[in-house]
Design a protein around this nucleic acid. Structure first.
Lengths: 223, 223, 223, 223
DNA sequence: CGATAAACGAGACGGTACGTCGCGTCTTCTG
DNA sequence: CAGAAGACGCGACGTACCGTCTCGTTTATCG
């Protein structure tokens, strides 16, 4: 079903099953990417639910039949569009090598272009907050659900700083956000439960070591 | 529009704007929570898209009119239901105080009851993967988008371990997941761009200190 | 259920069953007629279907409960309102007696007042064409259904005049309308089938005698 | 909006305004009549108000969208269905010609088939008494409104017979019904006022000539 | 004169049908 | 045959009305 292989790798896999019969008009390959581009733009502009198949067809100047000839459902199209959008994140062959792990990690996220990166962010937002109009849900989740938890955690951390258990220069706010982020990520994307063991691992292996460490190597400040 | 304030705090009932007129039948407050409970159960059981308003009405033994009298749309109802579900996360007055920051943080996530916690997870999952059927999107996002990035990052970290820049006992996999989690969280929930400054802060304040720290305090193993 | 007896005849029927208990506030009799007036006005203004019970309640400055205390349904209210509207048509005791049957019949329809008569017409129209906005249905029925029939009948009558079977001065158009009217009246109001026997009676007893009669007594012209 | 022209006459398809664009799937003309047939059956079986659009869609094995693509509302559909039902009443080209006006008029109402005629009656009844349950309204109208009037008119006519002004064999009951029928027909279907002039014309041209005529030509009896 | 009981106005409630919109399929014409 | 256009079957949405109910208030009779 996925069209991405064809798009990503320009090889022609010779189509063993349900190959296009030799006669008749050939598939217009440029339509594949036109539809995906239209879908990504629609996702970024109006979000998943307001992205209707008719809208995408109109943006791609095609008809729905040509879309469903390529993808069996809206979901499949979105999946492929997302994979396509991130097709350049995966070049394991040409990893940066600056000699510093910090610079290596940062180099990896250098986007192709500013506007590409901008759209990428909006696409993810349009996905996560199902509806463009309804991204209030996101705000409410972050404010009411994770916001409350982060405030409580921050208070616990501040107290720990006061009694000298963790470093004075610990990044309290950042740590709390990591906790929220891992919870949301695990439940909504990995579709696993964020249980106590997972949480303890996060604390023991990453957060507590960082909190105890008294040094901030590069001295950057928060934005 | 939000009914949660009334549900959460049974107090400030002065109602300056659009207060219920003194005459006429009073709103049945028990219906508010009955509908929200029904909505949460529906979310947990069938996910956002399969949760129809008629289904929720049937579960709450009411009619759609009474639901739309309270919330102007399905989305508004879901927002309030989510806030309601987490109304107890915010009790800043009774924070745990075990003397250890690790135990404090863990104590905070002790749920009221096992089944409450179970449903909470399912509700979040039902939200994130909008449709039961469509959780493939989630899988693809984690596999293709973040999966590729995590693999690359893991390779960079392994190399750094080899050249002695970070600790041999560093939690490579966990660190990579935190990076993915923070990206997803920032874009889909906080609705902000995950830019280079934000990333650098995460690295400098939390991840790099943890990676350099050679100790794993509590000795817990990964799940 | 019917309130009309009480309104029409001011006698107090001593209420054998479900009589109003001696204690408690008394029914406001002026409300009965206020509601009926409001209902008639609503019927005349917007027709049966757009006459909502809330609208009538608002017009009568009362609540729906007070209406349903008197009539068990919208239909019952409308029935009584119609009867009330025509309560003066039935005074068999004081029939006109002018010595001429023509003047007697005409005298009977002298309305109480012009505006009363006007509203009466509009009420009937609002009933027959269920919706005010939708009285197009009526137009279509009269145009397409009865219109076609009337045209055909008119042609038959004209031919009969030509061959001298009926009077030259026969009222062709009027006769055709009577046929349509009797069909509609029998089926929609009397709820009987307008079968061949009924039709033959109408022809033999009324229409054919009139058509053969060569005289137009009073010489009035059509409007 | 009306689809009947297309159904009735298979000709003039030039379609100057809002013609179906040359491209795209064509409207399925058989659906037009399938829906109309379903609507007529529903009207005959359950009456106007119990005829829901979902019911008609189910009977026609289609969806509501396809119905609303053709007619903008339930009312429009009913209008066209009624016109369609009577599309054969208008064959002016093949009028009967028996040599007797009586037989001509009767021959015109010979239905295409018995069951067609049967349904036609039930459709009209389902219309006039808007709801199956609400045909009480019809009964009340005929009983209280026209019934009272007819009784009074009958008394006037009887008196006129007694003093010899009209024929002894005059059809008193039939004449009174014609008066009621013309009133109802004029107001509810023609949507005109039944004023004194109209009434006088009816009397002078049809009813009084018939009443004065002393002969009952064909000797048929009342049903 | 206060208690009791019912009517009243307002409006919430459960239910049902409406008319709209989107998905994924099918059909028609054009290249 | 593929492409563009758009009709089709289905199902959920959000609205409106019916007839019932529950409030708090007003009006009447009874103890």
């Amino acid at each position: 079903m996925s069209k991405i292989k064809k798009l990503a790798s320009k090889k022609n896999e010779t189509k063993p099953l349900s190959r296009p019969s030799a006669v008749g008009r050939k598939r217009d390959d440029s339509l594949d990417s036109a539809i995906i581009e239209a879908a990504l733009n629609a996702l970024a502009e109006v979000g998943f639910d307001r992205m209707t198949m008719d809208l995408v067809a109109a943006k791609a100047k095609t008809g729905k039949a040509s879309m469903y000839r390529r993808w069996s459902s809206k979901t499949e199209l979105v999946r492929d569009a997302l994979v396509f959008m991130n097709r350049h994140s995966v070049e394991l062959t040409e990893l940066p090598d600056t000699g510093s792990i910090r610079n290596d990690l940062l180099a990896l996220v250098k986007p192709k272009s500013a506007e590409q990166s901008e759209r990428k962010m909006r696409v993810l937002a349009g996905l996560g907050s199902f509806f463009a109009e309804y991204r209030k849900i996101s705000e409410d989740i972050s404010t009411h659900i994770f916001g409350g938890w982060e405030k409580a955690n921050a208070q616990l951390l501040t107290r720990a700083i006061e009694r000298g258990e963790i470093s004075k220069s610990a990044d309290v706010e950042g740590t709390c956000q990591v906790i929220s982020a891992m919870t949301a990520y695990t439940t909504t994307l990995l579709l696993k439960t964020f249980d106590k063991t997972t949480y303890a691992n996060l604390l023991d292996n990453i957060l507590l070591p960082a909190l105890r460490s008294g040094t901030k190597p590069s001295g950057t400040k928060k934005a």
